[in-house]
Design a protein around this nucleic acid. Structure first.
Lengths: 235, 235
DNA sequence: CAGTCATATGACTGGGGAGTCATAGGAGTC
DNA sequence: GACTCCTATGACTCCCCAGTCATATGACTG
C-alpha cells in the first residue's frame, strides 16, 4: 500500500503521478518499466516517489488495483438470473467500453497477466478472483441450470473466454488498422459496424462453445464439477 | 544469424551452449535472461559468446527458430481431408508430445509469445503463421462442406482459435504450477490426467464453437441469436 | 522568533547487465 | 623457428536501475 503521504497529495499532483504510472506500465513490461522515467514524466523527484510508495511493486499494485476496480465498476455485477449469453455480452461490451475510455489502462491490465508481471491477481488478491471468478461462477451456474454443457471444466472455459476477450482489442486494432495512439483519441473506433460484427461473431462462437445440448445434467458431471481454478489433483 | 565460428565448433561444445541457452530462456523472460549466466552455465567465456553470436537477441533467435522447426516437424502437416476436429486435436496433441520430449524447449516457446519477448514469430516467422494457416484452411474447408457454421467470419474464427491454442501452454503452466525449471526435471507433467482433460475440454469447446448445426448454409442458426451485439452499441 | 512536522530533492550507492578489447593460446604452413 | 589464422579469455567500459540519505523548504504552532 502506498504511504499516507501519497493520499495527502493535492489531487492534481496525485493524478499526475498516476497518469505517469499508467503511461509507463502501459508502454513497458513490469521489469522494463523504470521508476526514473515515471518520476521524470510526472515531474516529481525520485525521493518523492519513495515517499509515496514503498517500492516499484507498491506503485504498480496501486495502479493495477485501481484499474481493475474501475473495470469491474464499469461492467457492474450481472443479476444472478442473467443468462450466460447476457453475461458474456455484458463482458464483451464492458471490455470494449473500457478499452475505449482508457486504452492505456486497458493495456496495463492486459500486460498484468503476462509472465513478467508480478502476480497481483494470481493468488493473494481478491480482485484476482473477481474477473475470472465472475466468469467461472456464471459458467458453473449455467451448467447447473442446464443452459451450458457440463462436460467441460468451468475454470478452463473461463480461461478460454478471458483469453479471447483480452485479445480482442489488439486483434481489432491490427485487423482494421487502428493505431494505438489514434485509438486513445478517437473513442468511436469500436462503434464501427465491422468491429461490432467481430464482437457479435465472437460472442456467438463462445456461446456455442459452451451451449448445453438441450439435455441438462447429461454426461458425467463428475470430472468437471467442483474444480475451480486452484483445486487440482485427485480426479 | 550466429557467426560461422559457432557452427565450426565441435558438436559437444555447441550443444553445451545451446543447452545453456535453453535453460536460461526457459527459466527467465527475455529481458531477465542474462548472457553472463548463460556463458557461466555453458562453461564458456563471455568473449567467446560474442564470437559466436552477434548479440543476445541473435542467440535467442537461433534458439527459438530451432525449437519452432522442431515443433513443426513433430506435428507434421495435417492431410487436407482431415476434419476440423482432427486438425485441432493434432495441434493440441502435438503440443503434448513436444512437451514430453523437450519440456525446457516447450517452456521457451511458451515464453516466446509473451509481451516481453522480441517478436521473432509475430509476422515473419513460422509457428504463428503455421497454426493460422492450418486453421484458416480447415475452417474454409469445413464451411464449404457444411461441417462448420458459415455465419461467422472465417478470419475472426481463425484468430480466436489461434489465440486460444497459443495461450494453452502458459495456462497449463500457471494452473498446474509447472515452473519452467521444474518442468525440466519432471518430464511427465503433461501426462497428468488433469492436463489431458484441459486439452480435451478445449478441443471440445472450439469444435462446438464452430460446429454447423446440421443445416449447412443457414444463417442465424440457433444458439447465439436474438441479441445482435452491434445494435446495442449506439450510445 | 524558534521549533516542529510533513514534504521535497537529487546526488549517491550498490548491483547488474550488455557488449568490447587487448592479450594469449594453438594449430597449421613454410 | 617464424608467420598467420582462428579461437579463447575475462577484466573492463558504459549504461541503467532500484532504492537511500543528508539536506532543504515551508507551513503551522507557541
Amino acid at each position: 500500500m502506498p504511504h499516507p503521504t501519497f493520499f495527502n497529495l493535492p489531487e492534481e499532483k496525485r493524478s499526475r503521478i498516476e497518469e505517469a504510472l499508467k503511461d509507463e506500465f502501459a508502454a513497458r513490461t513490469y521489469t522494463q518499466a523504470s521508476v526514473d522515467r515515471i518520476t521524470a514524466a510526472a515531474g516529481v523527484s525520485k525521493g518523492s516517489f519513495y515517499q509515496y510508495f514503498v517500492d516499484k511493486l507498491d506503485a504498480y499494485t496501486h495502479l493495477v488495483r485501481g484499474l481493475m476496480s474501475a473495470r469491474i465498476d464499469l461492467a457492474g455485477t450481472p443479476p444472478p438470473e442473467a443468462t450466460f449469453e447476457e453475461v458474456l455480452t455484458a463482458i464483451v461490451l464492458g471490455s470494449h467500453d473500457f478499452h475505449r475510455r482508457d486504452p492505456r489502462g486497458w493495456a496495463v491490465l492486459a500486460r498484468s497477466l503476462s509472465d513478467d508481471a508480478p502476480a497481483i491477481l494470481d493468488s493473494d488478491e481478491a480482485l484476482s478472483e473477481d474477473i475470472r471468478q465472475w466468469t467461472t461462477t456464471a459458467i458453473a451456474a449455467g451448467q447447473a441450470t442446464g443452459e451450458l454443457r457440463d462436460d467441460v471444466d468451468p475454470g478452463t472455459a473461463a480461461w478460454m473466454i478471458e483469453r479471447v476477450l483480452l485479445g480482442v482489442p489488439h486483434y481489432v486494432m491490427a485487423r482494421f488498422g487502428i493505431a494505438p495512439d489514434h485509438a486513445a483519441t478517437t473513442g468511436s473506433a469500436f462503434d464501427q459496424p465491422e468491429i461490432a460484427a467481430v464482437a457479435r461473431d465472437l460472442v456467438a462462437m463462445l456461446v456455442a462453445a459452451l451451449a448445453g445440448n438441450g439435455t441438462p445434467g447429461r454426461r458425467d458431471a463428475g470430472t468437471a464439477q467442483g474444480t475451480p481454478l486452484g483445486a487440482q489433483n485427485s480426479d
